[in-house]
Amino acid sequence: MKLLDIHNLHAKIGEKPILRGINLTVNAGEVHAIMGPNGSGKSTLCQVLGGREGYEVTEGSVHFEGQDLLERSTEERATAGLLLGFQHPVEIPGVKNIYLLKEALNAQRAAQGLSEVDTFAFMKQVRELTKSMGMDDAFLHRGVNDGFSGGEKKRNEILQMLLLQPKLALLDETDSGLDIDALKIVSEGINRLRGSDRGIVLVTHYQRLLSYVEPDFVHILYQGRIIKSGDKSLALQLEAEGYQDILDAAS
């Protein structure tokens, strides 16, 4: 089943074209990795799929479970089951983490026509997830990402993902800034989301995340287009040879 279907996607910021004809299909059960040098359009792709203002789609289409994704608001995309994991999660002082988690879960439930989550069950689930992410309960009562280290922020992203159980997780450089222990915990978290009914898209610079979360497909994004796709061996090749050889070969 097609979860995400991107067809000939073009997008620009201001007058500057960034995405120049992206084609990508993610089926349920698949893990894709998108790699590419700085400035290739990886983060732009994430922002466009997330519905960020300031990015203008000039051509092409994106469908999520067969529905037009681009005409939906950011929150509608989220409650429909698309989760964007941020490269730089923003700090929101004053808004408790636990409050965000509950609001987010209830927003999703409301979109599904379900009643608000039972607080007791919710707390139990959240505490288990927190523990599994190697985080202290105190995190739940701090402001969202407020004063968190880089690694703590990324773990917090995965914690949210595991609670919300998105159909498609789009993780933008979730591995950046992690030490090896944190990388393992984050990878385990991502692997727990894997399932026959879900898709995961990992946007990363490095192979090292992919040794923990093995992708089914690897794509190389360059100058706003996917110039090469392959299986996980492509990431290894990239690691060994660098971008230049692959770019030369592709052109």
Binding site: S73, T74, E75, A78, V95, L100, A104, A107
Partner: peptide
Amino acid sequence: TSKISDDQIFYLQSRGISEENATNMIVNGF
């Protein structure tokens, strides 16, 4: 002195929370 940033609103929206509720969450937290 602080300002509610677009990044904060977008972050909360990307978790399924409407812009209005996102603003309220930040204001109430404040």
